[in-house]
Design a protein around this nucleic acid. Structure first.
Length: 195
DNA sequence: GTCGAGATTATCT
DNA sequence: GATAATCTCGACC
């Protein structure tokens, strides 16, 4: 399968090639503008670093599957599993430009966001596409979420990943320069004690 | 436009 | 019980 060949490579190699490709979920299609690579069992910043758990077992499976996780008590984020089965590598979709189904996306996001902000940021992207925990584990060629390769190569910038404490020095965030849908880099601010 | 801080809950220890 | 691959809002420039 084409998906298996494309995604069955190291995540830092797949990630920049995802830029400009298309991901569809139902009526909504986005053009990917920002991604991050996680290499799984060798990556201290990955959920898979400490071995498989019920949540992360999808990442340990074959490439081309979808891994969805819930963070900060409010947001879903969508990853595409990369690399050979067992390596638990994945690419996080951080941002995209809505190219189809804008009405549906806006229904989910509300009236406020500008068009380029509908799928800016991992949580917003998942919300605009209707991605929830039940989507985790589905196949990219047969499930509710489909992927199409980009038509032409695009320019790519890279830099440190966002919001991670460990391995902050590796430049495994990739984005398309000049895209308004790319989130601005924010320094990671550790959460202080509640109340 | 940038910056700082609170919200809120699944998952793991 | 602590942690977290984030978002939004209000204050300020």
């Amino acid at each position: 399968m084409e998906c298996t060949a494309f995604f069955g490579r190291p995540a830092p190699e797949v990630a920049p090639e995802l830029l400009g490709s298309f991901v569809s979920a139902g009526a909504v299609t986005i053009r990917v503008t920002e991604v991050e690579a996680y290499t799984g069992i060798t990556d201290p910043a990955s959920h898979a670093y400490r071995g498989p758990t019920p949540r992360t077992e999808v990442m340990f499976g074959p490439p081309g599957h979808i891994y969805v996780y819930f963070v900060y008590g409010a947001h879903w984020a969508m990853n595409l599993v990369c690399g050979a089965a067992g390596t638990a590598a994945a690419c996080l979709l951080r941002a995209g430009e809505v190219v189809a189904g804008e009405e549906v996306a806006r229904e989910r996001r509300g009236e406020k966001p500008a068009r380029h902000a509908l799928a800016r940021g991992p949580g917003n992207l998942a919300r605009a596409m209707g991605i929830v925990g039940a989507t985790s584990g589905t196949e990219l060629w047969a499930g509710p979420v489909r992927w199409c390769p980009r038509a032409e190569p695009v320019e790519a910038c890279h830099g440190p990943r966002v919001g991670v404490n460990s391995a902050a020095e590796v430049a495994w965030r990739f984005w398309i320069p000049g895209e308004r849908s790319v989130s601005a880099y924010r320094k990671h601010t550790p959460r202080l004690r509640p109340r």
